[in-house]
Nucleic acid binder design. Structure first.
Lengths: 209, 209
DNA sequence: GTCTATAGAAGGATAGAC
DNA sequence: GTCTATCCTTCTATAGAC
């Protein structure tokens, strides 16, 4: 599967528009050092963009940049996870593949990368309503996306959304543990546990006509 | 149950030793504004301690203070969760009570408080080895604590630890979602999902002699 | 739209009087 | 142990030349 990182999208090549370079570099820095822990000068340097360009492309300053990073990263990961699901024969193996893919990614990046949405969500949920709302919107879009998978597999809508919530919760939480402990076991175990639940409930579902 | 917050432990009363006031105020600020997002001058102000006292009690500066906050908060929450478990008649209702208690807490604090350990873990796991190690130690202590509960209920040690990992992952992840979305559903759903898994596996366990 | 320079505030840290 | 004053760096943001 594709690696769950945006690293390869932050080149110094002039072919990539300045605004995109800034966005990608910001996402990389935010997910590793946090939102508060990342300075605009660092972003300017990492994106090979002069400092003034940041305020040209993001007149709202760091906050606007943060919001754009959240929303773009959210979209990126939603598409990525959907592609992982699409590459699997059924829902249960799809769930396993998502967690195993995440485990592989954190291992390959030497436990450097976290989910930028979760990092910012934890940091600013209490203090910055604009960014909090952006993270909430992203989580909701992920939930809607996953819920559709579960309903398509036969779950009633209500239960499908609950399982989507449980999936994303487990994934984000296991990410935190795996990175802190430098051990991917939390991710693989969380994935298998949830996959087992889905499999069992799926088998107990009444047959569709 | 007791509220999952240290708020009440950060009084201005001179009866509380300065060092403790600093620790409590730091924990409060870190969990709401993050580690990088909290300044030492803020801590000095919130703890009603002169700035110099910070470096008197924590010669290692912000990093030492951060480590102490992680380890003390970790111990605090471990004891708190154990007391919740002890107040329930069995393991399954204990699991539910922990998640429901967490949901109640975030609701009561108006979604202000996160888990300080998770916040710092996400922020600094890649950039500060000392703090990363402290968060890893805390997570490990939680896992050990939860594993003991599961083994006592009859699970084999290997599976007990897996369930402990799944529990803490789900709890931390649901915390992130609940706070960002200002909705405790993620916590209650994650708790119920995990409790169901535990209940089912418990029933399938061979009877103990 | 690119880039430099700098303002003004806040950051962590230290020295030293009391 | 308490508290004030200050140092130097870094932060976000802005002004303005090109």
């Amino acid at each position: 599967m594709r690696r769950m990182t945006t690293e390869q999208l932050s080149p110094a090549e002039p072919a990539v528009p300045t605004k995109q370079r800034i966005l990608y570099a910001s996402a990389e820095l935010f997910r590793r050092r946090g939102y508060s822990g990342t300075g605009l000068k660092q972003i300017s340097q990492a994106s090979h963009a002069p400092f003034g360009s940041l305020y040209h492309h993001f007149p709202g300053g760091k906050e606007e940049l943060g919001e754009d990073v959240i929303r773009e990263s959210g979209e990126f990961f939603r598409v990525l996870v959907e592609s992982v699901f699409d590459g699997e024969p059924d829902l249960v193996s799809g769930v396993r593949a998502v967690f195993d893919g995440a485990a592989e990614t954190v291992r390959v990046t030497d436990f450097q990368d976290a989910c930028p949405v979760a990092v910012i969500a934890l940091e600013v949920a209490s203090t910055n309503e604009r960014l909090r709302l952006a993270t909430a919107d992203v989580f909701e879009s992920w939930i809607v996306s996953a819920t559709a998978r579960f309903t398509a597999a036969g779950f009633p809508k209500r239960r499908a959304r609950e399982l989507a919530l449980a999936l994303i919760s487990a994934l984000e939480g296991a990410f935190v543990l795996a990175r802190a402990m430098r051990d991917t076991t939390a991710l693989t175990v969380a994935g298998r546990t949830l996959a087992d639940t889905v499999e069992r409930e799926l088998a107990a579902l009444p047959r569709r006509s």
